[in-house]
Amino acid sequence: MGFDFNSLLAFIIFGVTIGVVYGIVALGISLIYSGLDIVHFAHGEMYMFGAFFGLVLAHNVGVPYPVALIGAMILTAILGMAVERVFYRRLTRAGGGYTVAGMGMIICGFGMSVALVNAAYFFFGAEAEPFRANLDYIPRLTFPGDINVPESYVLTAIISVLLMTGLHYFLRHTKTGLAVRAVAHNKDIAYLMGINVPLMISLIFGLACGLAAAAGVLIGPMQSVQVEMGYLMLMKAFAAAVVGGFGSLPGAILGGIMVGIFENLGAAYISASHKDIYAFLLLILVLMFRPSGLFGVEAKVKA
């Protein structure tokens, strides 16, 4: 069997597309990390809830897919902000991520993850549901060498680029974005600048959860939607964030793409039944040679 260059290219294209989705979830994890100095362990569940909200909107309410995407993002953002406001804020008020309260915060995140999974079982049931989306208006891309890229992958690529550009513009070129970056760097100084810090933290949470929801709705048509989907996504996104350098936003995206490619190539050329191992193999390799991640900065210069 000779080496087939075309299929290699195909694996890379699919890897990049899936990787960008990992990257979007990792972006949210990184945003929350830079805003609150905590790793949000219930973020996979935000992704799962986002997928279900999108599914309900598309199937039961019957809105078109793009509207379902936006609706799911908004609903999940509200859910995320509510969770932050009711549960996390008491803990973050007692101190940041490097204090004892920060440890409590991590455990609270795990608990929230379990609680949300069970709430999802209650509301959405245990069955995996296919996400049927009408995407006929999206062109199916054909690359030379008979590589067909399905509509859902093309759409994922487009939406991801839009989301990332939007986030970049928001953080770099708007006053509120500047305030978010200020809060991410140092909350006390942000207060002295007259910034309403708790409000900004809510906003960071809402943004991050909205991004996770977008990832969920994008993955929906490729795989199916089920309650346990968040766990693996959290792990992959976490790997992506660490590979890219924790707290770095471009790093999160590039880390996600690397995880996606690595995973697809591993599944294709080594063993498809161990697909989920490769992300962590990459994680271990990167941490062995560059403990701060590929794009991480040594000092705490964030956002």
Binding site: K175, L178, A179, A182, N186, L192, M193, G194, A303
Partner: peptide
């Protein structure tokens, strides 16, 4: 208005961004 200690500028922001932040309110 409290002027913070000098080490508490935002090192990852430009000079102008720092100044604009001062007028945030």
């Amino acid at each position: 208005v409290q002027v913070t200690q000098a080490k508490e500028a935002y090192p990852a922001m430009t000079v102008e961004e720092n100044l604009v932040l001062g007028a945030y309110t």
